[in-house]
């Protein structure tokens, strides 16, 4: 311990505002946060025996990713000009730049939403992708069964009957309940033949007497999976069966499709959605910051310089994450 005599200087520490230092430290924690996701993605992908890279399967649109990169870079530039504007006391310009950034952020989210929409419509969602033909068969049966709504109808009927029993025990009025039960019974009776068809299909699946067939509409199969469109003559395929069901009962099954087999697709979807999802959340947080700044209107002034700078730093970080996500998800 030194015995330094004489009077020390007044200010200790770094010559940057606390808020800026705090923001940089926060960004450090954010780096580690995304490291966990990106690192997990890298090691899981390397550790997985395979990975779906076919854009037709995964609906990864490289153009959308590239455009989004472009959009984010533009917004980075606009936000840096906003800071310049505040520093040069050109607040009108700064506000315009902030609005431009906000618009670009909306654009980013819009393109992101378009990509997500593609994945949702093709059921490329974690936990919903069959990784083998057998799974695809089971999934189809599950979806068909759910589409009939038989289980809910039966459950409802049972509950009503139980209520009836309870009410009869007390000796209350049961007329309205009985009419409800009759109606519900009709519903169940209506569904039952349809659901029986599904059950028949199911028994075929369990007996192994039905093949998947080619879900066709979307082209080739995932690599590594032997496609079974060579189904022998006379052998039934699930694709045909579902098509038939579509024709017979469009009111029930219109939304049911035979899902496409994507090997290792669930792991792919899991990592894809967690990385892009949390990035999108950060985009939204950044937009909230910009909305707060724009909301200041003409009150935006030099006292907000640190705020603008910190929002900018945060926004650049969001951009940085995307700069790495783009090659890792879209290109590699």
């Amino acid at each position: 311990m030194s015995h330094q005599h004489g009077h020390p200087p007044l200010k200790m520490g770094l010559a940057i505002p606390n808020a800026k230092l705090g923001m940089w430290l926060f960004l450090g924690t954010e780096i580690m946060f995304f490291t966990a996701f990106i690192g997990s993605y890298i090691v899981l992908r390397l550790g997985s025996p395979g990975w779906p890279t076919n854009a037709e399967d995964t609906h990864i649109v490289i153009y959308a990713g590239a455009i989004n990169t472009f959009v984010l870079i533009c917004s980075s530039v606009s936000v840096v000009y906003a800071l310049e504007g505040v520093r040069n006391k050109n607040f009108d310009f700064a506000r315009k730049m902030l609005i431009l950034t906000l618009v670009l952020a909306c654009g980013f989210l819009g393109i992101k939403a378009y990509e997500y929409y593609g994945k949702f419509t093709h059921d490329i969602l974690p936990g919903r992708i069959p990784e083998s033909n057998q799974q695809a068969l089971h999934f189809t049966i599950r979806d068909l069964k759910a589409a009939t709504g038989i289980e809910e109808a039966q459950y409802k009927l049972k509950t009503l009957q139980k209520q009836l029993g309870e009410r009869q025990a007390v000796g209350g009025n049961t007329e309205s309940l009985q009419s409800q039960i009759e109606e519900q019974q009709k519903v169940v009776d209506e569904i039952t033949p349809v659901s029986n068809k599904v059950d028949q299909l199911n028994s075929l699946v369990t007996a192994g007497k039905i093949k998947l067939g080619d879900p066709g509409a979307h082209g080739a199969h995932a690599e590594g999976e032997q496609p079974e469109h060579s189904a022998a003559e006379g052998e039934q395929t699930m694709v045909d069966a579902v098509a038939k069901l579509h024709e017979e009962h469009p009111e029930y099954f219109a939304s049911v499709h035979v899902p496409k087999v994507i090997r290792y697709g669930n792991l792919f979807a899991s990592t894809y959605f967690i990385m892009t999802g949390f990035h999108a959340l950060h985009v939204i947080v950044g937009m909230i910051l910009f909305v707060m700044l724009i909301g200041l209107g003409s009150k935006l002034g030099s006292q907000h310089e640190t705020f603008v700078e910190n929002s900018g730093l945060y926004w650049h970080f969001v951009d940085l994450v995307w700069i790495f996500l783009f090659p890792l998800i879209y290109i590699v």
């Binding site: 520490g13 606390n18 705090g22 430290l25």
Partner: peptide, 15 residues
């Protein structure tokens, strides 16, 4: 923790 780090780095008394 962000708060503590900032405080310790930047808000120490003179000397």
């Amino acid at each position: 923790s962000v708060n503590y780090m900032t405080t310790i780095i930047n808000m120490r008394a003179p000397g």
